[in-house]
Design a protein around this nucleic acid. Structure first.
Lengths: 345, 345
DNA sequence: ATGAAAGCGCTAACAA
DNA sequence: TTGTTAGCGCTTTCAT
């Protein structure tokens, strides 16, 4: 009972031609006798027939599969959004192949090639491609691509992302309003989003007339381990910062862990803000103040957009910008010594 | 420059037949002139040719794609192991399609069907299937399947998992050794692994001559929210437990959050142990004592096993059992009032 | 050592 | 309304 059942078996069983079966499969039953249709359907069920997607893909009908490229699936931000993407895709009859590129150039290229050979109808690119030509070649070849998270002007496709500048700005303003002057930023090395967040950070400082300091601006990969390291370096400075804006929650957790180890109290001695609002932000104690991205919305939108472009056969080149939201929890507080002001009080 | 280049284009350019090109693609160059081979290779490169996997799949060569079914990709345990699986698969030239089944029966069935149509060469099943026939039909149809995490005797395939009984036993013994008598367990409703962990829990109690109490045994879905709820219920008991064994880290985090809210101190007033040793266990404060699964090992093994079965064309039906390891961190401590013993001291 | 030709399971004109 | 047939791009005997 292991033999694969094909369209021929169904046709024979239903006493029709394979063309008729094909029409039933594809719902081209415009002018087909209802009885015929039913007979075919019954035969398909009885034989437990499932059309071979490969064969229809060969005919240019696509594979009903989406490729999802993320820099690191073990980062909760990406695993959370991957879940949303996968759900939405399935709702629409698509499956998704996911690749973690690990910010590794070779892997980036290999992953795309792996998915390319028509295995995939379109790509959602959440990774930070150093070699832009990888993505550019895709679009040049007519493969639908939507970028997630990165608003890279060099790559001319639809994009779904939050206003990173605003997120960085608001986070920093919050520190500032709490009386902090010595505010550090830990940003993700390769992420374009982090560049924007840094610009927001700088703008906020400027608004308050504060000169940015090079030693307060750390760039690194966005892992917990690097957050710990970054904190260690910042903490060793002759004048350590009293507040930190970490460009993702993992880095922020790293800071919390590092601070804990050194006996630095958060938020009493160090105010901290993360970015993403992943599960991590709620799981820590104290709970992390962070800039939320609308993960559910973004995931859903990026899928809908991509599928639409697949159907249309061309890119709509939309730039869908979401609003980040500062979620104030327990890692931020007033500066304990608001400098000169404190002295006069 | 957008036209797809086929084997015919390569053949024409190299001045050979498509059969020859095919041989080069598949490395059947046993008795082929080296010069011919090089000519073909050069043509392939110059045309940037990539074989169409669909077409070769149609010929029964497989898709070089693995299906991964997990109950919930946003659970760090699964996203962490998914990353490992994906890495290993890519190393071996396979891609992986991932589906979150969300412990939803309909989705389970739909996901499998989605992947079935020969889209996938084999399955890694990490989900808890209520309807066993879904997986059974797969193996009956000759599709390679390896189970991950669940050692279900009803399903006769290879399996990769930890000794859940031992994990549950050791966690509970640790509580017991700390002088706790009132130990609750929060287990995952549908996971077979949780059943085993519960058995270990019961065995440990028995060893210490402690009668299990029904009200200390909570079963629920393994999310943070449910952890909070479960703690709430346990806490309302006339005699609340002084220690909790949560069957995954997410539940444990929920307990921590719930305890925080009610002002219950961990570990002073409540000892807590989780399971999995995900990032969550290290991100919380205090850091979570938990039972570690060797995620990296397990992920690698399950891929290797599946690919081997795909190549062999038959199931090896191995049961690969890993050792869980209790990682003692900061959420467990001696019972503050070791009952009658405390009184005499 | 290389090539011709028959499919793999399906779709889409075009016939009937 | 239904069936015939020519491919889609590739692999694989079997000839040459």
């Amino acid at each position: 009972m292991g033999m694969k059942v094909t369209i021929y078996d169904v046709a024979k069983k239903a006493g029709v031609s394979i063309a008729t079966v094909s029409k039933v499969i594809n719902n081209n039953t415009g002018n087909m006798r209802e009885s015929t249709k039913q007979r075919v359907k019954k035969a398909m069920e009885e034989l437990n027939y499932h059309p071979n997607i490969m064969a229809s893909a060969l005919m240019g009908k696509g594979t009903k599969t989406l490729g999802l490229l993320v820099p690191d699936i073990s980062n909760p931000f990406f695993s959370e959004i991957a879940k949303v993407i996968e759900d939405r895709a399935h709702e629409k009859g698509y499956s998704v192949i996911m690749c973690s590129t690990d910010e590794n150039e070779e892997k980036e290229k290999k992953n795309v090639e792996l998915l390319q050979s028509k295995l995939v109808d379109g790509f959602i690119v959440g990774s930070t491609y150093r070699d832009k030509s990888i993505v550019q070649n895709l679009t040049k070849a007519g493969v639908p691509v939507v970028m997630l998270t990165q608003d890279d002007p060099v790559i001319d496709v639809s994009k779904v992302f939050v206003d990173d500048f605003k997120g960085g700005y608001e986070a920093t303003i919050h520190h500032l309003q709490n009386g902090h002057h010595k505010i550090a930023i830990i940003s993700e090395q390769r992420a374009l989003a982090s560049v924007k967040r840094t610009e927001g950070y700088l703008q906020a400082l400027k608004t308050y007339g504060i000169q940015p300091r090079q030693e307060y601006m750390v760039r690194t990969r966005g892992t917990i381990a690097n957050g710990i390291k970054a904190f260690g370096n910042l903490f060793q400075l002759p004048e350590p910062p009293t507040a930190i804006f970490a460009c993702n929650d993992q880095l922020a957790i790293g800071v919390m862990l590092g601070a804990k180890e050194k006996g630095i109290k958060i938020p009493e001695q160090l105010s901290l803000i993360g970015f993403d609002d992943t599960i991590l932000a709620r799981a820590t104690y104290p709970r992390l103040t962070t800039v939320a991205q609308p993960i559910a919305e973004m995931g859903k939108t990026v899928v809908d957009l991509l599928i639409e472009e697949i159907r249309l056969g061309c890119s709509k080149k939309e730039r869908i910008l979401y609003n980040p939201e500062l979620i104030i929890r327990e890692t931020t507080d007033k500066a304990s010594k608001p400098d000169h002001i404190a002295k006069t009080e």
